[in-house]
Amino acid sequence: MSEELAIDVRGMTKRFGKHTAVDHVDLQVRKGEVCGFLGPNGSGKTTFIRMLCGLLRADEGSGQCLGHDVIKDSETIKRQVGYMTQKFSFWEDLTIEENLDFVARMYSLKNRRATVRQSLERLGLTARKDQLAGQLSGGWKQRLALAACLIHEPLLLLLDEPTAGVDPIARRDFWKEIHQLAGQGLTFLIATHYMDEAERCHRLAFIANSKLLTQGTVAEVIENSHLTTWAVDGPDLLQLAETLQALPGVEQAVPFGSILHISGPDQAALERAIAPFRTSHYRWKQVPSGLEDVFIHLMEKPRETVST
């Protein structure tokens, strides 16, 4: 079984002074899987990814990454992992081609020129190869970064919010590319904020306040949240949202276009809360909880447990 796992780590912990940025996080990702890594800003995603590729020393934790010890063999892991940083981190005063060439030299690749040429072609960068990286738009920068972290044919890709600031078409192309690569056996761990992207992942891991809250497939994550959601359509929904939000049993009342999603973890309490409003003015319907409802639910939960 562990043969099949690309990432298998337990108890990963990182402290910065008094602050624990990552608190005993376990994560298992199978080979060829695309794992979405979700969590609000500052929850510890970047820190966790940096520990996986040896850029930060873990304070606690153990396990394997591509079959190598995640603590001791970080130099070996580095050669087999492609890491795409959250902030664009290629040399803005080098051209696309020069950046790729530099990376290829760093990994001591054989047939360096041919590899760089192929890499340019595959990601559609050939026409722009002499453009300075600093002058590229967000989408092209991201393509360059992806090309660069693929050039040494890694087995695992760690992508930290790769599509931030990228337009929808480029994002769609990007995800097509990722699923193609996953089909060839590459494993992905992708930190993201976007729900539509999360839904494209085989697996999800939610992290909030430095702790892993849940992991599993999209369906499992929704199932495990035990969240009930009702959709309501009618007049003056903003007023209704405010009224409902204050009631016990209602955790969220969020407008989605012209309808309102009301959700809460306790089905009976929720139905009790909305009962007085189920008049002919409104059209009510129970709907499956969306990933976003679950995401917000998970983010709110730790705060509640602290306050009670």
Binding site: C53, G54, L55, E75, K78, R79, V81, Y83, T85, K87, F88, S89, F90, W91, E92, V103, M106, Y107
Partner: peptide, 13 residues
């Protein structure tokens, strides 16, 4: 400062 150090460190150099 420009963040390229993180990239450099993630490579086997």
């Amino acid at each position: 400062e420009s963040g390229t150090m993180e990239n450099l460190l993630s490579m086997p150099t």
